[in-house]
Amino acid sequence: MIPAGFEYHRPADLSSAIGILLEHGDEARVVAGGHSLIPMMKLRMAELAHVIDLQDIGELKGIELGASTVTLGAMVTQHELITHEGLAKAIPVIREAALQIADPQVRYVGTIGGNVANGDPGNDMPGLMQCLDATFTLFGPDGTRDVPARDFYQAAYFTSRSDDEILTRITIPVPAAGTGQAYVKQKRKIGDYATAAAAVLIGNGTASVAMTNLSDTPVYSAEASEALANGDIDGCVAAMLASIDPQEDMRGPIPFKRHVAAVILRRAIDSALSRKS
């Protein structure tokens, strides 16, 4: 459980970080909270000559509440998401989801940017960001570009971010007042990834549904969302079940996962409906 030797970099601004990335190419990776990368390095499943720690880069911090959008710096920690009262008022489902990630010690260090950028299908925030229709801002040698969360994930650990880009900000439209929001997660114990998790928004004539850890990417389903917007819960569940592709692991076999996916989605819908006004 000891990683191979590596060089540790700790730049103070984004352009320096990009400079180091460009210099070392695929021998370098950025690290945010480190909860995914460092265990992989300790298992020697990831061997990197250069690790670029982003924690000193001020540009990556901060939660900004706008009239119609919320912007989160990539290095905002899960703990900050949970304790930010304005954010909890604007988009309460973010706190609800963050409280179900890992444990308090991990959440003090784990970041929203690391959670969404790593492309780990087990992470909770990618599905939630798809549900919320967030946009990810990427900064690279050619400047910045925006990618919708719903287009970002390609396969497990593969995203549309290129190796010389850093995810800097996440912009989330604030759901209309009265929108029912819920994040429901089944897990084996505190700290575990989801066996199945569902993020649901239900507004007046609108709805959005995404699920976590039931495929090699988070699963947003436009069809399921539309069915739910029309009040067709069974149709929503059926559409979602047609979109997921769970794999067997120690959490259980595929039929179990498909079953609980439907159960958890229904519970999230019930919860969101109960909060809708």
């Binding site: 084996r188 259980g252 076999p253 179990f256 079953h259 609980v260």
Partner: peptide, 16 residues
């Protein structure tokens, strides 16, 4: 008796 095995008991007994 983890979650999926308990679920399997219910499934096999036709409780779903």
């Amino acid at each position: 008796h983890d979650q999926w095995r308990i679920w399997r008991i219910a499934e096999n007994l036709g409780l779903h």
